[in-house]
Computed example of a mutant assay.
Amino acid sequence: MGIKSAYKGYKAYDYLGPEDYKHFELCDGLNRVEEYLVPLSEDEEKRVKKLAKDLIIISLHEHPVLFPKDLTKLDEYAREGRERAAYEALSHSYLDAVFDNMMDGTCTITSKSGWKWDEVLYDLGIRLCDLAHQDFVIRCEKVDDIIRAHREGKIALIPSIEGAAMIENELDRIDILYGFGVRLMGVAYSEANGLGSGLKEDRDGGLTAFGKRAVERMNKVGIAIDCSHCGVQTTLDVIEASQKPIFLTHVGARALWESRRLFPDEVLKACAEKGGVIGIEAAPHTTLTYNNREHSIVSFMEHFEYVKNLVGVDHVAFGPDTLYGDHVGLHHAYAGHLSTKSTQGTHDYNEVEYVKGLENPTETSKNILRWLVKENYSDSDIEKILSGNILRALNEVWI
């Protein structure tokens, strides 16, 4: 619906007083760097405004929160356990629904390594408590919530978790996470766990026996499955084992840039053949290409075009994986937690301070639509790409 009409000024944890938790100086959500918008003609601008108003627009993968200005405070910020949802900045986006991946790999409230069951529940509970005290963002539990958010000028937020290490060998924890509101979960986040192998592993053992049971339980419960950080064989095994379409929420094409973070054609095709959806990634230095070694919206869209041409327009979407803060600096600070060396590959590239045109969820949501209009995509294809493909798959997966 374009800029959201329902936002009334709430800031994260406004229901608490200054004495209740530790405060940090946070980045400016929208003005950390100069905004870049894909240039358009006057007629194209009019079309963008109409489509932004008329279409449902969904991001498959974001971290729509504010990070500290001073990155030396990151560990302290994470241990406090209160990431600040960027409500105001989101109100200026084109998004109607966003898959929020919480703290995930940086969830280190009591642990140096993260991914602990208690910490994940702490993170979910605190964030959902904040969500319950405002009326702009809707806690999304079903497809109808996304449609309602669009109709009411609000945003539907879908709690998501990038890896399943914290369920250990307890299938019932999948049910518990569903009860906490989780509607999408990754199988492995880079490192192997009890379900399967992550992309960091030199040897991919594929989906384990327990992993197959976990996939079956996620299908039954209604949690969508993501394999963005899994190894190739594990991903192929999950696609085969799942009775429902799966998601690769934030990936790219390895054919364009050699990196474990990106998938070869056989995986992208297998995902699409089972009805799955592939979201294109934009986090710094991921969707580079041999033609564009400086990461920007140009290389990002090169991956989109390649994947769209490979699997068809009915199976592509966007999962930019952006945030409000210094994303490059965060990657440096959390290199171990976030597996950035595996993400960036081994080829030479030009490191950027930020990804031009894809700096944060607000700018990214605008520029994706602007780029599709500039490239003269039809209204029907734009609708499929920005929401239709995702909604079709979610209608099959969610209970």
Results as ranks from 00 to 15, higher is better:
V143C: 12
S197A: 12
S197G: 09
L131E: 03
S228I: 05
W115V: 04
G211T: 02
R139N: 15
K112I: 09
D204S: 08
L131Q: 01
K220T: 12
A192T: 04
I225Y: 04
T110M: 12
K116Q: 15
F180W: 13
L121T: 10
A164G: 07
D202L: 14
E141G: 14
V143K: 08
T106Q: 12
I223S: 05
D104E: 12
K220H: 10
G205D: 11
R217W: 05
I225D: 01
L207V: 07
D175H: 05
I147M: 09
L207E: 00
E191I: 11
V232I: 15
V182S: 00
L121H: 06
V120R: 01
C227N: 03
G198M: 02
I158V: 15
V232C: 08
R217P: 01
L177K: 02
F210S: 03
I109D: 01
T234G: 05
R148Q: 15
D118G: 12
E216W: 00
A149I: 07
L177H: 02
S197L: 02
W117K: 03
K154P: 00
R173P: 06
V120E: 04
V120H: 02
D118A: 10
A192V: 01
Y122F: 12
Q233W: 08
S113G: 14
D135H: 10
V221F: 11
K200D: 14
L199D: 03
V143T: 13
K142D: 13
D123A: 09
M185Q: 07
W115S: 03
L207P: 01
R151S: 15
T106L: 14
G186K: 00
C140S: 14
W117P: 00
H133D: 02
G179M: 10
D123H: 06
F180S: 05
R203H: 11
T234L: 07
R139S: 14
I167A: 01
H150M: 07
V182I: 04
R127D: 01
I147T: 10
N169T: 13
R148D: 11
R213A: 13
R148F: 09
G198Y: 04
G179P: 06
R183K: 11
K154L: 07
L121S: 04
E152Q: 10
S190F: 07
C227Y: 00
R139M: 11
T110N: 13
L184G: 03
G196T: 02
S111T: 15
I161G: 03
E152M: 10
T110W: 15
R217K: 14
I138R: 05
K112E: 12
F210Q: 06
R151K: 15
I126W: 06
T108E: 04
W115R: 00
L124D: 00
A188D: 00
V221R: 08
L177A: 02
F210D: 04
D118F: 07
Y178D: 00
A224N: 06
D130Y: 03
R217H: 08
L199E: 04
I147E: 10
V221D: 04
